[in-house]
Amino acid sequence: MLSLNQKTVDSWSLPEAVRGCVRAGIGSIGVWREPLHEVGVARGAELIAEAGLRVSSLCRGGFFTTADDLDDNRRAIDEAATLNADCLVLVVGGLPPGSRDLAAARRRVAESIGELAPYARERSVRLSLEPMHPVYCADRGVLSTLRQALDLAEPFDPAVVGVVVDTFHVWWDPELEAQIARAAGRIAGFQVCDWITPLPADTLLARGMMGDGHIDFRHIRALVEKAGYTGDIEVEIFNADLWRRDPDEVLSLMARRFAEHV
């Protein structure tokens, strides 16, 4: 059930992360496209398969509102298919430079999903919309709540367009219980890390190890499982202090904290 998202050990290449998972007895990995490209998609898929690992997600596609590159998103779908990943995580993008029009940005996201969904269906890839905490609305994700992500996903087959429940982004939401219940059958991924305070100057690196912050992981896990999710649980942590530590030590700490708190 425990999966290592590569960002938690950002200094490792994909081969190093695969070997680290094997050493730590972790059976699944969330792959990022940049380190995948460094070794080549086909070779990366071989390394993961040879190690006996599952791919819980490929990160990431999206950025429809800024880069607006559907060709790159199609390549990401192809890569997810090659890896046999459970889903392709979509970070939808923030406001275009100079824009203050949130409604237009959200419409663009919906249009992009509509264009990509048939391509994903043909390749048996599940697109997974990730709502992001409102602090990232301007620069990374104009979908700020699980309700918004589900509103966008609902016109599509749940096997083609789902959502990611990331504790860091959704723990604060007063509608969380109701929206996770609404997401039954559509949860494509479940990611965990903690919300720590005080926030660092770079909020992108504000994620903490489970137990170091304020999130009730067991409560959210129970909600997600009640909604029918049975997949892997990824630990995805962007944290400069963790990135400076020995990655094997980070994996050991991660496994202990996962058992204690998740």
Rank of each mutant, 00 (worst) to 15 (best):
Ala85Thr: 07
Pro247His: 15
Val192Ser: 01
Leu223Ser: 01
Cys21His: 07
Ala67Gly: 00
Ile187Asp: 00
Thr145Ile: 14
Pro174Glu: 15
Glu130Leu: 12
Asp232Lys: 06
Leu199Glu: 14
Leu251Tyr: 09
Arg244His: 13
Leu90Trp: 02
Asn84Thr: 14
Ser56Ile: 04
Glu34Thr: 11
Gln6Pro: 03
Ile215Asn: 08
His169Cys: 11
Ser128Met: 08
Glu38Ala: 04
Arg43Trp: 02
Val92Asn: 06
Asp71Tyr: 08
Thr66Glu: 11
Lys7Pro: 02
Leu205Lys: 15
Phe156Pro: 06
Val235Leu: 09
Leu95His: 03
Met1Trp: 00
Ala159Ser: 14
Val135Ala: 12
Gln6Ala: 08
Gly228Val: 02
Arg108Lys: 06
His133Asn: 13
Ala206Trp: 12
Arg256Val: 13
Ala117Glu: 04
Leu36Lys: 03
Val142Gly: 14
Gly231Asn: 09
Arg182Asn: 05
Pro200Glu: 15
Val142Tyr: 13
Arg207Ser: 07
Ala42His: 14
Val224Trp: 03
Glu115Asp: 04
Tyr136Thr: 12
Phe64Trp: 04
Leu47Glu: 15
Ser124Gln: 04
Leu102Ile: 10
Met1Ile: 01
Ala159Lys: 13
Val92Glu: 08
Leu4Trp: 02
Phe64Pro: 00
Gly20Trp: 08
Val165Met: 00
Ile77Asp: 00
Ile233Pro: 01
Leu102Pro: 04
Pro35Glu: 02
Ser252His: 15
Ala255Tyr: 07
Phe238Thr: 12
Val160Gly: 05
Arg256Tyr: 10
Leu4Gly: 00
Thr167Ile: 02
Gly189Ala: 13
Asp78Thr: 07
Gly44Leu: 07
Pro200Ile: 14
Met1Arg: 00
Phe63Trp: 09
Ala120Leu: 01
Leu143Phe: 12
His169Leu: 12
Ala201Glu: 14
Glu111Tyr: 01
Glu50Tyr: 09
Asp139Val: 09
Arg75Ser: 12
Ala110Cys: 07
Gly93Glu: 07
Glu46Gly: 05
Phe258Gly: 02
Arg221Leu: 00
Asp86Glu: 11
Trp243Ile: 08
Arg244Ser: 15
Arg147Leu: 14
Glu115Thr: 07
Leu127Val: 02
Ser99Gly: 02
Gly27Met: 12
Gly27Thr: 06
Gln6Trp: 05
Asp10Val: 08
His133Val: 06
Ala45Asp: 10
Tyr229Leu: 01
Leu204Glu: 14
Met254His: 11
Ala17Asn: 07
Arg108Glu: 02
Leu116Val: 01
Glu249Cys: 15
Cys87Tyr: 05
Asp212Pro: 15
Glu46Tyr: 09
Pro118Gly: 09
Ala188Val: 01
Ala80Thr: 06
Trp243Asp: 11
Leu2Met: 05
Glu111Ser: 00
Val262Phe: 08
Val39Thr: 03
Leu95Tyr: 03
Phe156Leu: 07
Val92Phe: 06
Arg107Ala: 05
Trp171Pro: 03
Phe190Asn: 01
Gly40Asp: 04
Arg54Asp: 12
Val125Cys: 04
Ala80Asp: 13
Phe63Cys: 04
Thr82Val: 12
Trp12Val: 05
Ala259Trp: 12
Ala85Lys: 11
Pro35Leu: 02
